[in-house]
């Protein structure tokens, strides 16, 4: 085996390896899709972020417009402060709503940006702004307990209502029987 032939084969080998790594990075990994262009960041405070994680997609109308930057806890107001990096190509009015949604039944959580119907002139969100209208992540236990409580109070309230009605009827008859 002379040297040039070995060099050739090793060159082919290394080139194949590079191609495989490039293929992994581009075709398999998220190197291409996660790259946003220039971004600006805004914050939003939530009472509960559920299982939202940094780098989760930020979607508007189903289109990925940014990524969640960081999630921190504000110990003064006991709120979770989420930094949202939005691609500079997109502009949103300053009164949009930030909601935390779940993709599918068991899917990951993502941030949805919606709404925004400000009167003219529209003021767009700038770097460092805060989104005021937010909606928390849905916590299943909370939802079930709210449902149960509302169900319970419904039946209770119904019963109370009927007795109240009965007494008032009694009162009214009493009143009606009054001698004047």
């Amino acid at each position: 085996m002379d040297r040039t032939k070995i060099d050739l084969w090793v060159g082919v080998f290394v080139a194949l390896g590079m191609a495989a790594l490039l293929g992994l990075a581009m075709k398999v990994g998220n190197l291409t899709s996660s790259k946003l262009g220039e971004t600006f960041s805004v914050t939003a405070a939530f009472e509960n972020v559920g299982s939202l994680k940094p780098n989760a997609p930020v979607k508007s109308a189903g289109v990925v417009v940014g990524r969640v930057g960081s999630i921190a806890f504000d110990s003064k107001n006991y709120l979770a402060v989420v930094t949202i990096n939005i691609d500079k190509r997109y502009a949103f009015p300053s009164d949009v709503e930030a909601n935390i949604y779940t993709a599918g039944l068991l899917g990951e959580q993502y941030l949805g940006i919606e709404g925004g119907g400000a009167d003219e002139p529209v003021v767009n969100l700038k770097n460092g702004d805060k989104i005021h209208k937010t909606q928390d992540a849905i916590v299943l236990e909370k939802m079930i307990s709210t449902f149960l409580f509302s169900k319970a109070s419904e039946t209770n309230g119904g019963a109370q209502g009927s007795t109240a009605k009965a007494t008032s009827d009694a009162k009214s008859t009493e009143l009606g029987d009054a001698p004047f």
């Binding site: 398999v28 998220n30 996660s34």
Partner: peptide, 11 residues
């Protein structure tokens, strides 16, 4: 695949 394979963490 692209949504779930991270370049830094996986590759």
């Amino acid at each position: 695949m692209q949504a779930n394979v991270d370049f830094r963490l996986d590759i």
